[in-house]
């Protein structure tokens, strides 16, 4: 951090930072500050009311009759994130490794694998909702023609949950694969050749060479995927299930695919628009992300294998 000496004046770096800081101030700090303040008020979007109620909104999140729903949503978000991140990354890495080993002939596959990333989440959600409509969707029409099954994709609690998980994984495959492909190109071929000579099979090579050598990228992707799962699953949820279906007890306090961010939207903009309550939730979400980020920087960097003196 001794780069400061490159600037003669202490003011100059601040001038360079100004544009960024201004943008951050207007679009991040100020709205964030407003959200924190709003969380302390009883505030209704339609009525424009603002009554200071201290921490009551936060209290209502964690105790009282509204709390079970919030806890359920919290738990669901956790399970959902884990299911989106780890299987998603594993599938991405396997696909990336497979196409990567094809060399230049794998070009077509690579393009096909990356394209879901180019779709907007709204389009992806619409495609899924058409395909999986239990009565008229393509998937069930095909299934019905040669099996007796016609699964209720959108209202069976487990199926709906898994469908949203699969949709999210699929939608983000392209993004993950791009990173893995780039990373795999930096894995020295010699490692594989040496391992092959030692009699290591394909699977051993994947787990012993590929996985450790791409671990810095994996580490990075875990966190980008986490923020994807926390925030960007919104559109898919909105279009596929609108947060539903409500599960069976004890998971009957909220829709099974209602995740933290979707609940913020439901409480703030749905129904009678209780903005204060929604703002309190977004503050909780903010604290959560802050903790995760601290974890990412503090703990993570020590444990990831960066391959020593590579380049």
């Amino acid at each position: 951090m001794n780069n400061q000496s490159q600037y003669k004046s202490r003011v100059l770096p601040w001038i360079f930072l100004m544009p960024t800081l201004l943008v951050l101030l207007v679009f991040l700090y100020y709205p964030a500050w407003q959200s924190i303040i709003l969380g302390l008020f009883r505030s209704n979007l339609f009525l424009g009311t603002r009554q200071f109620i201290g921490l009551e909104n936060f209290k209502n999140l964690f105790t009282g009759p509204l709390a079970p729903a919030y806890y359920q949503v919290f738990l669901q978000t956790l399970v959902f994130s884990v299911l989106v991140i780890f299987p998603g990354l594993l599938i991405s890495l396997i696909l990336a490794a497979m196409t990567s080993s094809l060399g230049s002939e794998g070009k077509v596959y690579r393009i096909l694998l990356i394209w879901p990333y180019a779709l907007s989440p709204a389009v992806a959600g619409t495609i899924f909702s058409f395909m999986f409509n239990p009565e008229t969707g393509a998937v069930n029409t095909i299934l019905r023609s040669f099996t007796p099954f016609s699964p209720r994709w959108l209202d069976h609690p487990i199926l709906a949950f898994l469908l949203v998980v699969c949709g999210c994984i699929w939608k983000n495959l392209g993004y993950n694969i791009v990173f893995y492909l780039a990373s795999l190109q930096n894995v020295p071929k010699a490692n594989y050749e040496a391992a092959e000579l030692d009699g290591a099979g394909m699977i051993t090579r994947f787990f012993r060479i590929t996985m450790p050598l791409v671990s810095p990228v994996t580490y990075f992707l875990i966190f980008t995927n986490l923020s994807y799962a926390l925030f960007e699953a919104f559109a898919l949820v909105d279009l596929l299930t609108r947060g539903g279906p409500v599960g069976a007890a004890p998971l009957d306090n909220a829709g099974l695919t209602t995740f933290l961010i979707y609940k913020v939207f439901q409480d703030g903009f749905g129904g009678s628009s209780n903005m204060g309550f929604a703002a309190a939730q977004s503050v909780v979400l903010m604290v959560l992300v802050a903790l995760i980020t601290v974890f990412q920087f503090k703990v993570g960097e020590k444990r990831v294998h960066y391959g020593g003196a590579a380049s």
């Binding site: 951050l24 709205p31 964030a32 959200s35 703002a279 977004s282 903010m286 604290v287 959560l288 992300v289």
Partner: peptide
């Protein structure tokens, strides 16, 4: 950067407004 990331989270909500 921790603060930044977390602000990003909140602004998602306030941004809609």
């Amino acid at each position: 950067s921790a603060i930044l990331m977390s602000l990003l989270a909140v602004s998602l909500f306030a941004g809609g407004q």
